[in-house]
């Protein structure tokens, strides 16, 4: 029981860290990493709950999410690369061409 709470607490801390990172840091790569952190926090919560309820499908779903996350990163990294090539900077504040 205590384990579950510990794990959920860890998941929450990780998520909060990731969120603050995304909101505070200006570096696109760091922001991506923080987003991964948030995703992993959510996955941790998922696994914890599946352990708690004793269902197998939660554990299976985690692998699925890993695959999707890997694919997502595989797209996100080249986008960041293209952006940094255009602006020769990783600072997201420079990417404001879509402002209203």
């Amino acid at each position: 029981m205590a384990d579950t709470q510990l794990l959920l607490g860890l998941s929450f801390v990780l998520f909060a860290l990731g969120l603050v990172g995304v909101m505070v840091r200006r570096n696109a790569l760091v922001m991506l990493m923080c987003m991964e952190l948030m995703l992993n926090a959510v996955i941790l919560a998922l696994v914890t709950f599946s352990l708690e309820t004793g269902t197998l499908s939660g554990a299976v779903l985690v692998f699925l999410i890993f695959v999707v996350a890997a694919a997502e990163i595989a797209i996100a990294i080249p986008i960041v690369l293209q952006l940094s090539r255009q602006r020769s900077s990783l600072d997201v504040e420079g990417y404001d061409r879509l402002k209203g």
Binding site: V22, M23, M31, V92, E93, Y95, D96, L98, K99, G100
Partner: peptide, 18 residues
């Protein structure tokens, strides 16, 4: 008026989403 919300700042969008 509303278009001013659309600043182009990623952080701002994230804050709004949160």
């Amino acid at each position: 008026r509303l278009s001013r919300v659309q600043t182009g700042q990623l952080q701002w969008y994230v804050a709004m989403a949160v």
